[in-house]
Nucleic acid binder design. Structure first.
Lengths: 205, 205
DNA sequence: TAAATTAGCGCACACTTGTACGCTCAATAT
DNA sequence: ATATTGAGCGTACAAGTGTGCGCTAATTTA
């Protein structure tokens, strides 16, 4: 029973329920471009026209969702880094953390995955920014921890992130045991890259 | 001026115009789930209801498109193999061939790319089959040409194919010069994997 | 030649969609 | 205490959708 609420608080609460409703609609069968304004409004418990009090478009809502999902992803990265510093292999820890994210925030990850190759240029660009961010941080980490040249580190990080996302795409529909097997494969593949990159770094800079 | 035509020929011709119309609708802004039956019919120059004489669903048409795109991809693979046998590095030749495909069959590739992480489980499965096929052939090739164990070859092939598809996804929206730079990066990354895989293969089998 | 088949069409129907417009009525500002 | 604001609602409309039904006209079969 909410006792009192300022107007702004109430508005924020409604906005949140719109966002949450949209996320819940984004299950394995729906994408941003296939959910309608009315559908979201219905799920959020407001009139269709009230939607406009919060977002000018369905696209504006979509960008908000991408941002939120990207934020969750960045939080994951921080979490992974702290675990690494606490011990445990870099690759192993990162992969496990990532897989946890895919499972526990599956709708968020699905959104990023889908809109990465979706129909909206704006959404694609937004997701790409998130991934670039991801690559950059990993690249910095690698460069500073291995003394590898920046260009090599960047190549390695890009390849790794792409593999991780691909694996995540498969993991999202997989069972627990399939996911574990996939994680093992991924870890080995990332080691290929790490090994190969360090080889070429020592050889040709 | 077509002089005469059997009924079957005429029907096949109409079917083809439906398929072609659908492919043409699948530009950078549209996906299978966002094109409507009426839209396809309009583009094909037939009445909406005539569509049903050829496909029971829009989904049935979708599966046909995925199959056709996959077929084009397989033809590409054959072409790449023949070029390899004629000399030139395996990786280099494969990447160039693939990039050519992405450019000259961009709508087909886009279809595969998009439906790979799309909303329809049936489409996803269909695309996955095509990719698995791709991986398997590369895996066989690697195993027989390097004497590497099947499991290692499979891991390597999977990683390579995933990287290639990721690069293709970026190449499709890129300019000529960007594409060339991207191809260079990809080639180097594939070398990482090849090097890493052969290292682990010699070490632990 | 007569009968059967069938690709393609037009009409109709019940829905869903985005959004313009004007109202209410509670929270805020004056 | 009074005036203003603004979140949320209901109504309405034009446009689009998938698809059932029955017709035509030409090809195929008998």
């Amino acid at each position: 029973m909410p006792h009192k609420m300022t107007r702004q608080q109430q508005k924020l609460k409604t906005r949140r329920s719109i966002i949450d409703a949209a996320f819940n609609l984004l299950d394995e069968q729906r994408s941003l471009s296939s959910i309608s304004l009315r559908e979201v409004a219905r799920a959020a418990g407001i009139a269709p026209t009230s939607f406009y009090r919060h977002f000018k478009d369905i696209d504006e809502l979509g960008l908000t969702l991408v941002d939120e999902a990207g934020l969750a992803l960045r939080q994951l990265m921080r979490q992974a880094r702290s675990r690494i510093d606490a011990g445990g292999g870099v690759i192993h820890t990162s992969v496990n953390t990532f897989m946890e994210f895919v499972v526990s925030n599956s709708n968020e990850f699905r959104l990023l995955l889908r809109e990465h190759s979706g129909t909206s240029p704006a959404f694609r660009a937004a997701v790409l920014r998130e991934i670039q961010h991801f690559i950059e941080e990993l690249s910095d980490y690698t460069a500073s921890h291995t003394g590898m040249g920046r260009q090599m580190a960047s190549l390695q990080a890009e390849a790794m992130v792409k593999l991780v996302f691909s694996a995540g795409a498969e993991a999202i529909d997989a069972s627990e045991v399939q996911r574990l097997a996939q994680a093992q494969r991924l870890i080995q593949q990332l080691r290929f890259i790490a090994k190969g990159a360090s080889f070429y770094a020592n050889k040709a800079g």
